[in-house]
């Protein structure tokens, strides 16, 4: 199959003025030619196939949005090649825009003062959507979410969740080949998040739309993506399926423990203290287990360990000998902790 998005050795550099401190420094800056080059994206290559939902992950400032902006044609790469729908995005920005949809979680493309249905009709006209296709799409939307009741509501009066939902629908309206979703679930409550995930999944399924999703919410990733690409400081760290990632960490287990009868009474500080004590203890006893990690979760103390280094039962035995355990759970490693490990550069 032909790929729908191709990135080949793409880099993006920004020239930034070296700022000085204070008022005196501010005056210096007015005449300064002291620039430094920041590599926001460094030599990234990937191919995205039609119909994929690809998670594009990385910590804040990793270069995710910069990559998205290059793929949409807003930014021009410093070097390398990008093709989206067979076009070079920054050279044909407006034509490219006809065939992509974009949602930026914190910005809206809807007409703020107007009822939602006016925005949709307007998009129908400016994307030159056939009346029949438009009707079909609206019917599909109405079957997926309760959008009808929002039609007459001006966008400025909508809640963030309603607005995001509407923005996603607007991005799919002209049935584009690719939709870019830049942190679509940011700031939303749990039920809205799941609503939006279901919607994205359904639209991807119905229309075979390729979706590029950036997010910090591992729930989004688990619910939607089969493939993930991880970048940090502009460099690509990982590009493969989630299963592969999980199997890579197959020997990792999370042991969840409670050391108090009523854990809900414990403060965060107390939990943290427990975790820190346990971490020190385990480090002394099992110096060979390098990847062992202890963290304080919601009412639980989590111990993450690699069974290739140390048997889980051994650790549990040791803990039980030294302190009273009220409750225990055993879990597979979560996507969240895997990705955290990658961000923290704990694995090569």
């Amino acid at each position: 199959m032909e790929s729908i998005i191709t990135l080949k050795n793409v880099s993006k550099e920004f020239k930034v003025l070296n700022r000085h401190e204070g008022i005196k420094g501010g005056f210096q800056d007015l005449f300064s030619r002291d620039y430094k080059i920041i590599k926001a994206v460094n030599d990234i290559s990937m191919d995205i196939m039609p119909g994929e939902i690809c998670g594009y992950l990385g910590p804040n400032g990793a270069g995710k949005s910069t990559t998205i902006k290059m793929m949409t044609g807003v930014l021009e790469p410093t070097s390398g090649e990008i093709l989206v729908n067979g076009r070079i995005p920054y050279k044909n920005r407006t034509e490219n825009a006809q065939n992509i949809g974009v949602v930026f979680g914190q910005r809206s493309q809807l007409w703020w003062a107007l009822p939602l249905i006016e925005s949709f009709k307007l998009l129908r006209d400016i994307y030159q959507i056939e009346e029949k296709d438009f009707k079909d799409m609206m019917e599909l939307y109405e079957s997926l979410v309760d959008i009808k009741e929002l039609y007459s509501k001006p966008v400025r009066q909508m809640s963030l969740g309603q607005r995001t939902l509407s923005d996603i629908l607007a991005a799919f309206l002209h049935n584009p080949g690719v939709v870019f979703l830049d942190e679509p679930t940011i700031g939303l409550d749990v039920s809205m998040k799941s609503k939006i995930r279901d919607l994205i999944k359904a639209l991807n399924h119905e229309k075979k739309t390729t979706v590029i999703l950036t997010t910090h919410d591992m729930g989004d990733v688990d619910a939607l993506c089969k493939r993930i690409v991880i970048i940090d400081k502009g460099i690509m760290l990982y590009d493969n399926s989630i299963e592969n990632l999980r199997s890579f960490f197959g020997a990792y287990r999370t042991l969840r423990l409670r050391f108090a009868k009523d854990a809900s009474q414990l403060t965060k500080e107390a939990l943290k203290k427990q975790a820190a004590e346990l971490a020190g203890d385990l480090k002394n006893v099992y110096p060979q287990a390098k990847s062992i990690g202890v963290s304080a979760g919601e009412e639980w103390v989590d111990v993450l360990l690699n069974e290739d280094e140390i048997a889980l039962m051994k650790v549990l035995n040791h803990i039980q000998e030294t302190r009273r355990i009220y409750d225990v759970q055993l879990k597979e490693i979560s996507t969240e902790s895997v990705i955290k490990k990658i961000y923290d550069k704990e694995i090569e």
Binding site: V74, R93, T94, A97, F104, R107, Q109, I126, H174
Partner: peptide, 17 residues
């Protein structure tokens, strides 16, 4: 605010729009 990016992604030229 960076919202200009939304305007730049309309399927017609910014000025005309």
């Amino acid at each position: 605010s960076g919202d200009i990016v939304v305007d730049l992604l309309r399927p017609m030229g910014y000025i005309k729009f």
